[in-house]
Design a protein around this nucleic acid. Structure first.
Lengths: 251, 251
DNA sequence: ATCTAAATATGGTCCGACCAAAATGGTCAG
DNA sequence: CTGACCATTTTGGTCGGACCATATTTAGAT
């Protein structure tokens, strides 16, 4: 019964009634007619304005919500939120969560992060300006100061990596970082922490920074790789099913 | 008016009625109870099954649609679609479209792509196996064969880069590639094409491949960088307002 | 058996209503 | 005047029923 091999006809290109409203509000948001952070008009007003039923209006608002153009809390007025890179990544959150279901998904994601950050430290080593170096130094200092407080260290750890993502001065990158951390956090947090591990990570960071300062791209990349590989190894032993590195992006 | 100085109460952790349905169906999809490609139960059946009104059921389905778990065409039965990495990127499509509104957004995205592909060619140079090289060679050949047909060349161009994304053997990467191409396509396609440009791009690809074969990571990276920089320059002169403010729209 | 036409199932839209929580406005103690 | 407190009005969330147009299925004709 499930073998209807025929080609799906796919004839229709018509639109739902809500699409019109979506487009309209969308445009109002982008044009600034509906300023950022401002509440959307009441549903009943919208239904009058567009001459549609409330159901349609609600669907439109819901769609805008899913697209990240408005933020809707259970019983509150939807609030306009101009789209940012962060919003984009937030929108995929749910799906990524599913992809992370199997350990393999986590591995893939983590490896993509490794891949990305390898390129970041290389970039940093080659092009970091004085300010960037200072930022890294500061982050590293906070790092060291938090060695005895695992929670604080976790924060400062992320912050250190975060600086790396900011160096290219591309707003997309920090968004990528926060996406990585938020997606990987659940798996990371189940990992045991200890001042010893913190100290170890601190030293890893220190070495990376050293290489960057020396403008040693290769060295920095290697240090970063070792840093993240070690961390992954920790995850691997913490979680049972992982291993079998069929093929990887490590260098 | 917007100065309710108190902290947003955020009291409610309550959920909409649709959330229950969403979770349930979500789980059914993941567990395989609702197989991939199979139609969702009728709305009226669902409303009976969950004891909710149709509005709620519809909202749930709509949400699943926006999350990429089901594919809904205007007047057809929603179809289950197990989430893949592609689905994730597809979900952000709308938002990214907005981000690309200003030329700056395009530039940021394009630069992130340059950043990513630099790392890719480096990876390729260091770790590409024979098969990978062969794939690149094949893609390059298709490239050359399509020099006189700009449309075909465009396809083979993407294909060549696509091979690069597949080399790390991480399913996330090809998804990133298709995301880049689909997002950048509208801007790219408005650029004039010509056999001359095609030939030029072909030569760029050839050089990149050469460097990869020579295991010259730095050389490959430089070649790739030059390749994409040139392409961007083309975009820059094609569109009036790009970086370097003060440019005049007259051409 | 194949194709066509009626019947039904189903999604899209609309209406009107109710409830509970949120926003609003006004009162009153300090 | 300020700020806590309460009554009222808005407003989002949910419900139920209804109608339409199109998909899908069924039955009938060829």
């Amino acid at each position: 019964m499930p073998e209807t091999t025929t080609v799906p006809p796919e004839p229709h290109g018509d639109e739902r009634a809500s699409d019109r409203i979506i487009r309209h509000i969308e445009q109002q948001i982008l044009s600034g007619t509906l300023p950022d952070r401002s509440p959307l008009p009441a549903e009943r007003d919208l239904m009058e304005q567009f001459g549609s039923s409330r159901a349609v209006v609600r669907e439109a608002i819901s769609a805008l919500g899913h697209r990240g153009l408005v933020e809707q809390r259970p019983r509150f007025r939807p609030v306009v939120r101009k789209p940012g890179v962060e919003a984009a990544f937030a929108a995929v959150g749910n799906i990524v969560e599913h992809l992370l279901g199997d350990e393999n998904g986590v591995r893939n994601l983590y490896e993509s992060r490794l891949f990305f950050e390898k390129a970041l430290v290389r970039q940093a080593a080659l092009h970091a300006c004085k300010q960037d170096i200072d930022d890294l130094r500061t982050a590293l200092a906070h790092n060291e100061a938090a060695i005895d407080d695992s929670e604080a260290f976790y924060q400062s750890d992320m912050a250190f990596h975060g600086v790396l993502y900011r160096i290219p001065r591309n707003p997309i990158f920090p968004a990528v970082h926060s996406a990585y951390t938020s997606w990987l956090a659940p798996h990371w947090s189940r990992m045991p922490r200890s001042p010893e591990r913190n100290a170890m990570n601190f030293r890893s960071h220190a070495e990376i920074l050293e290489r960057i300062i020396e403008r040693d791209a290769d060295g920095a990349e290697i240090a970063l790789r070792r840093h993240l590989d070690t961390a992954w190894e920790y995850v691997r032993v913490t979680f049972p099913s992982s291993s079998t590195p069929g093929r990887d992006t490590r260098s």
